[in-house]
Structures are given as structure tokens and as C-alpha cells.
Write a protein that binds this DNA or RNA. Structure first.
Lengths: 252, 252
DNA sequence: CGATTTATTGATGCGAGTCAAGACCAGTGG
DNA sequence: CCACTGGTCTTGACTCGCATCAATAAATCG
């Protein structure tokens, strides 16, 4: 298995060179020749605190990324979906644990080799930076959500994010699936399962969503969802921020 | 002013070359020859959404980093202190606004030049990655705080962080100053000023802290503070996380 | 010194957590 | 096929922490 890995490694490096000359190279292509690894639902890919020897490309399935607090509470800091790279933002140890929500397949790549390859390529370097910045932006969005959105807004934000991801690949499809459990969603949104459940019931009553089995829902009114998510017209320019300083100091 | 800047730029590049050959080079040294810029308290360094043309080294003072939501609410995602680099985790636009909490002095550096210089230096590259990972780790800690800590734990965590920063430079000094207002603290911790105030009063009554003027406090019992912050023995190994899954599903 | 901003303290209400019961599923095996 | 079982989800009743509203008190500044 180890020797097989070495062979793959060489092939990958060849690919890099070829791609470097001809086609536009992307970070994922580094992984493309690595063998697929399967992980059944509920299994752990790596633990928080473990030495971070590898990065992973998630090929299929969904991962949950979480920390366990001293008192046993779990905080899910994110979900990863096919195409995502897991572990780009780490030093020598994993900052979090990663578990398979559903059966998962990943490709593995040595962190050191990854960094070396990326750093030596003027094409890949900015892509790595961009990835990190995206992660950072996502983390900040989550902080905003946790700081000052109420239960309904949180659930709407979550559903909206899933919808947009779905529509990125298949426009005009408004059925999103929720592979994770209610407990996963609750731990991600900083709520309890009961509150998540109640919020979704409320949205169903309003006709904004319609349940389609336990692990998928149909978005009936995406615009309403966006409105309720509190992500309305993101007025991010300087003037608006100055103006709004004397406005609402309310929390909910 | 512009021409003066250009001259400084050249000197900086010379420095880079010299340092590259001789002494251990750090990211801050890139800024060392840039002119100091002053910013009075309350002034904005840059706005969320502006084109990110520069990075900044904070030389003196404190910055608050925040986003304004559509309804006018403000979320402070972090504070920056002397020695910090502002803007390392950004694409082409600032993700947040930055304001001076107190009079501030910064050095400015072109983002493009910064990235080019850093990427071409094998010494600086890992430092940049490390910075980004630190930012990411900080953001995740904040997400944990916002997800499942109560008011008192949040305030304790905040004070503890300030204490540790202080002790990093001056051990055995237990008086930390709070240059920011209660409103800043509240917007950072996802609370209201009243709750922040009440929490600190409670800590005072317990003899854990003692107010020393409005903008500084004395930490009487650092260990108690750490305990109340809920950051006790961070049991981060894999086994503990498995064990604790069936434990407490409580939030406060 | 008053004027204004900022912080503290108190009274009250609401949103979400908690506790508990029941519904809706898979599976599994009789 | 149905009964049984363990797990997940929903719904209801109640509680409590923190937000809200309001009134002082303390600090800062012209």
C-alpha cells in the first residue's frame, strides 16, 4: 500500500508538470491520482489534536467538523461537501475532528508535499490563499449568525446556504437534502434539536418550505427564506455603515 | 507624500534583501521602513467592501474589526493589538471594517507587493500560513464561545485572553486595561452592555476581579477566572471525544 | 462647573432551553 | 405480514437567562 502510494505520487508530479505547461491547474488536480478511501457513516476521519499529516479532498459524501468542549458539549464549526479540501487551514495539528455524516470517499495527500507543491507553483499559490480567505469569510459569517440571529433566522440561513450550494450545480431545483441529523444542525447553529424542529415546523406552516421525507425538504419560497435569514440587501458600503450606527441597537 | 512613499518602498526592498541574507526575517520587518500613520480614536482605517489595496501593521493602539448587518446591528469579530497584521486573510475586498478604539499608529504596505515578497521568500511563506492558521483558530474559538458559553463564561474568556496577552509581555502583572467600551465588549461577546456590566459586577463580588478605574481591572484570581471561562482541562484527544459523546447534552 | 456620554443597577418580559410524552420511522425477527 | 425495538423527530408545558426598558450614577469634556 505504501509503495503503491509512492507510485501514485510520482504520477501526480508528472501530472503537475504537464498541467503546468498546458491546462489551467487547480488544487484538486493534485489529488486526482491518489487512491479513493471509503469511510462509512459515523466514522472519524481524524481527531482534533492529532498530528496533521494529511490533507483530504472530499470526493463524495458529507463531513462534519467539530470540537468537543471540556464538559462534553459538541460544537460543529462546519460541514464539508464534495469538492472541498479539508485541512488547508492548519498548523501541525488538526484544529477539529472530522466525521462522516453519510458514507464518504476521500483522497489523501501529504501535507508537507502539498505545501511544497503549492508554494512552488505560481498558479497554485493564489488558489491556496483564496481557499483560506474563503474559509475565513465563512467563519466570520458563522460568527455573525451566532452573535445576533435568532432561531428562525439561523435555520433560514442554513437552508439558504444548502439551497445555493445545490443551485450552483443544478439550477431550478429547489429540493435540498439534509443528510445530517437534527442534532447536527442544532450543534451547528447553536440551538437545540427541539428549537430547530419548531423553527422548521413554523416555516412549513408559513408555506416557505415543505418537508419531503426526513432528510430532504422542498424550498417553496426562496425569496421569503432569504428575507427571513436576515441577509437582505447586504448594504456593505462605507456610507451605509456610518448611517446605521445610530440606528437599531436591538438584538432580535 | 506619494513620492515619499515611493522612496520608502525602495528602502524597504533593500532591507528585505539584506535581511534575507543575514538575519532571520519576519513579516513585520517588511513594514519597518514604511512611514507611521496616525489615526485618532473612533476613526475608520478601512470599510468592509472597500478594495483591499493595503495591509497594515498595527504599531500602537487597538483596532476593532466589525461588520454591520442589514438592520444596523454591529458584530465585532475581533480586536487587534500592537504587532498584529491587519488584512492577511483577505481577497480583493476587505471582509470587515476597522476602527481605532484609541489613538492608533499603523504602517501600510501594498497588498500586491506584500504577497509577491512573501511568496518569493521561503522564510516568509510559512509565517504567512501560520498567521492565517492562527486567525482561523481564533475565529473557531470565538465560534465556540458564541455557540455555547453563557454570559459569565464569555466575559471570563474575554478577560482571560486580555490577561494572557498582557502577561506575554509583562509577567506577574495582573492589571489589564480595557481600552474598548462596554458596548464594544458586548458586541464582541454577543451580549448587551447591561449583561456585560452585571457579569463583571458579579465577578467583583466574588473577589475574582477588582475594578481599577473604568478602563482597567485587576485580576485577583486568575485560576478561578480560567475555571469560570469554561476552558478547563481541554481534553482534546480522540478517546475523550468518543467517551463524552454520551455525556452532557446540556447547553448552560 | 454643568453637559453629555458611558456605566451600573433594578424591574419586567420573552425566546429558547429543559423536561417529558408521543409520533414516526427504519430494521429485525417471528 | 405484523409485532417489537431502538433511534430520530415532533409537539407541548414549564423554567430561566438574558434582552429590554427605565432610572441613576459615574466619568469625561468643553
Amino acid at each position: 500500500m505504501l509503495s503503491a502510494n509512492s507510485v501514485e505520487q510520482v504520477q501526480t508530479y508528472n501530472d503537475v508538470v504537464v498541467a503546468f505547461e498546458a491546462e489551467p491547474l487547480c488544487l484538486q488536480s493534485l489529488f486526482s491520482k491518489q487512491p479513493l478511501e471509503q469511510l462509512e457513516a459515523g466514522r472519524t476521519l481524524f481527531f482534533e489534536g492529532d498530528r496533521a499529516k494529511h490533507l483530504f479532498e472530499l470526493v463524495e459524501g458529507v463531513l462534519r467538523i467539530f470540537k468537543i468542549m471540556a464538559d462534553g458539549r459538541r460544537v460543529i464549526t462546519g460541514f464539508f461537501y464534495p469538492g472541498d479540501l479539508v485541512g488547508v487551514s492548519l498548523r501541525d495539528r488538526y484544529l477539529y475532528s472530522a466525521e462522516a455524516v453519510v458514507p464518504v470517499s476521500v483522497r489523501r495527500f501529504g501535507r508537507r508535499a502539498f505545501e511544497d507543491t503549492v508554494c512552488s507553483s505560481p498558479q497554485l499559490r493564489p488558489q491556496l490563499l483564496a481557499r483560506l480567505c474563503d474559509e475565513m469569510a465563512t467563519a466570520q459569517d458563522q460568527m455573525v449568525l451566532l452573535s445576533c440571529k435568532n432561531a428562525e433566522e439561523r435555520v433560514c440561513s442554513f437552508l439558504l446556504k444548502l439551497l445555493r450550494r445545490k443551485q450552483g450545480q443544478d439550477r431550478s431545483c429547489s429540493v435540498v437534502d439534509l443528510p445530517m441529523t437534527r442534532l447536527d444542525i442544532a450543534d451547528y447553529l447553536g440551538l437545540t434539536i427541539e428549537t430547530v424542529s419548531r423553527s422548521m415546523t413554523k416555516l412549513t406552516c408559513k408555506g416557505i418550505i415543505a418537508p419531503a421525507g426526513r432528510h430532504s425538504i422542498c424550498i417553496k419560497k426562496a425569496s421569503m427564506l432569504a428575507h427571513l435569514a436576515g441577509e437582505g440587501d447586504e448594504c456593505d458600503d462605507g456610507y451605509s455603515s456610518v448611517i446605521s450606527l445610530d440606528k437599531a441597537r436591538r438584538r432580535h
